[in-house]
Amino acid sequence: MKICIVGGGLLAYFLARSLLSKGHSLTIINNDREECSWFARRLKAVIVHGNGTQPAILDDAGAASADSILAITPHDEDNYLICQAARRKYDVQFAFALVNDPDNEKIFRELGISSAFSPIGILSLLIEQRIGYDAITNLTPLADGKANLTEITLDAASPVTGKKIQDLDLPQSCLIVSVMRDGQVLIPRGGTELHPGDRIGIVSLPEVYPRVLAVLTGDTGV
């Protein structure tokens, strides 16, 4: 896949490195000359020096033939403009924008940039949902962040160990989808009994998540 990245810093560097290692061909647009030569020395990518919000620079970088554009500058309005240009002028399949102001995530979608992604939004979601809680090993947003997949390891103190899933007082909008026990994965049914040490995967809506946590860990968080 031909990918064009507009942006700089370590974010662009590491993103480029990871995409290159997966075999994609890459162009990076950056408006800092020194950073461009730094990239050029370290990455097997085409580096274009210039302001990515200018259509002439996007033309130079071959945006018209790119399959996707990733706009990851620190300026939301620039990222927006780059994605709009990619969509409107070059008909690029996939335009991805980094948004810094979490409010803009929704706005970008409204304005037709469906792949807007807010690291701050995700971070604060994680913090709100107490990712700090040791037993939670994984938390992945699903369906644009409207649902989460999370994994929790049950300890002996958990009030649900020894109980069957059907007897748990879980909210409606959540589902236990997997149980990992002794290295084996079970797809649980209502009659599955939970044991201490089970690592369970749960899909839930964010609004019921604290309640799910409270039921499974006995910790009400207050």
């Binding site: 919000t53 300026h75 309005e77 927006y80 403009l81 709009q84 706005i107 409204e110 304005l111």
Partner: peptide, 16 residues
């Protein structure tokens, strides 16, 4: 002074 700022907030004003 910035085209992208102008275009972005104009679009937000129009659409949102």
């Amino acid at each position: 002074q910035k085209d992208s700022t102008n275009l972005f907030c104009a679009q937000v004003a129009k659409v949102h």
